[in-house]
Every structure is written in structure tokens, then in C-alpha cells.
Simulated scan of single mutants.
Amino acid sequence: MDGDVSLTIRRLNPQEFSVNVPVLVDIYITAMNYDPAIRDARINVWRRNSMNLGFTAVCALLDGRVIGIAYGFRGDQDHWWQHQLRRGLRERGGPSPEEIAILQDYFEVAEVHVMPGHQGRGIGRKMMYALLEGTPAQHAVLSTPEVDEEANNAFGLYRSLGFRDLLRHFRFDGDQREFAVLHADLPLDD
């Protein structure tokens, strides 16, 4: 796939992202095997996210068809997600001075998804580099569902990019699944 010149990683401005959100959310639902009943709610959330400070989005196009999406924005102490992280760190006995520094200056990688059949070919990696290139934050933070022995493409990608544990086996309010919350220093190493 690396030599395939038909693969393009393209940055989307907030307006392009918002217009294309239905297609992008469909990729998310398919890649994560979620119930399509969540579609309308996720479209609304993603459109609201595009208004966050520092919003950045990239998509992967193969032969002109969107097969991947990644987006994020500057972390903010007033966002629900950071409140959740602070709760998790307190419950674990923190936050430590290093964790406080991370939460004061980070880019939240909100979503990274590649269509099944195209996963494991370096597309997520290319999107992550494009997404985080030039980000003014000192850290990137993301969450991913826990899996036994980190045995999936997502964990492999994040670990290979230098992401380390911030929280493990964490449950966000309203979700019974366990998540790993990972962080990396920016810029990412090549």
C-alpha cells in the first residue's frame, strides 16, 4: 500500500468536515462495528466538535473514495473529556506533576478510523502524522477500547508512534467498556 500513488491524505477544513460528516460517521460506525442507530447523534457530536479550538481533520482517499478519517482539537479544561480524565487520575491517586503538564497542553485525538479491509496497511499511521503535523500542543492524548494483550491494529499503531499509558481500564461516564488513555510527546518521532 505504501507505493500506491492512488492513496491521498487530505486535510479538511471545518466546513468541508461538517458537510461530509455523514460519510465520515459511517466509516466510524463500520470500523468500530457500532449500531447504526447512533448515526444521527454522532453526526451532531462531530459537527459540534468541528467548532472546537484548534480543530484539525484529515481523511484518507483511495481512488477518490474516503476510506479513513482522523480528527481532533486542542484539549480544554472545560471539555467533558478532560473532566473525565481528571476524575480517572484522581481515582488512581494522581494527577502527578507530569500528568498535570500533559493536561495543560495537549491535542485531543478524538477519532481515528480506517475502513475494514484497508486496516493494517499504514493508512492510520499516515493520517496520524498528517493530523499531528504542526500541532502547537506539546502532547497528544487519545483513548482506545481495551483489548486483551493490546492485540489489535489500533494499539499496534499507537505504540509504534510512541504513545504511552496515561490511564488503563478506565470507564468514561455512560460507557461500560474499559478504555486505555494514551499520550505521546509532540512532534511524533519519525
Rank of each mutant, 00 (worst) to 15 (best):
V114P: 00
D35E: 13
P97K: 05
A101R: 09
Q119Y: 09
G124S: 05
H83Q: 15
R92Q: 11
M32C: 06
F73Q: 07
E91Q: 13
R47G: 06
R92K: 13
C59R: 06
R42G: 02
G120P: 08
R48H: 15
M115L: 15
E91D: 14
Q77H: 14
V114I: 14
V109Q: 00
R74N: 14
E91G: 07
R92D: 07
G75K: 04
R121C: 03
R92C: 03
R65N: 13
G64W: 03
V45M: 12
V114S: 03
D63V: 00
G122P: 04
M115P: 02
T56N: 13
A101W: 02
Y106M: 07
R86M: 14
I38F: 07
A70S: 15
A70W: 01
D78I: 12
A70E: 04
T56L: 08
C59M: 11
F55W: 09
T30Y: 01
A101K: 08
Q104H: 15
P95V: 10
G64S: 07
R87T: 11
D35Y: 09
N33W: 01
F73T: 02
M51D: 05
G120K: 06
R87L: 09
D76Y: 12
L85F: 09
Y106L: 08
W80V: 13
I123P: 00
R48K: 15
L62C: 06
G124F: 03
N52A: 10
F107K: 01
R86F: 11
A37Y: 01
A60Y: 05
V114H: 01
D40G: 10
G93F: 08
G122I: 03
Y71I: 11
Y34D: 11
G72P: 08
G94D: 05
G64V: 05
R65Q: 14
G75D: 10
I100Y: 02
N52G: 04
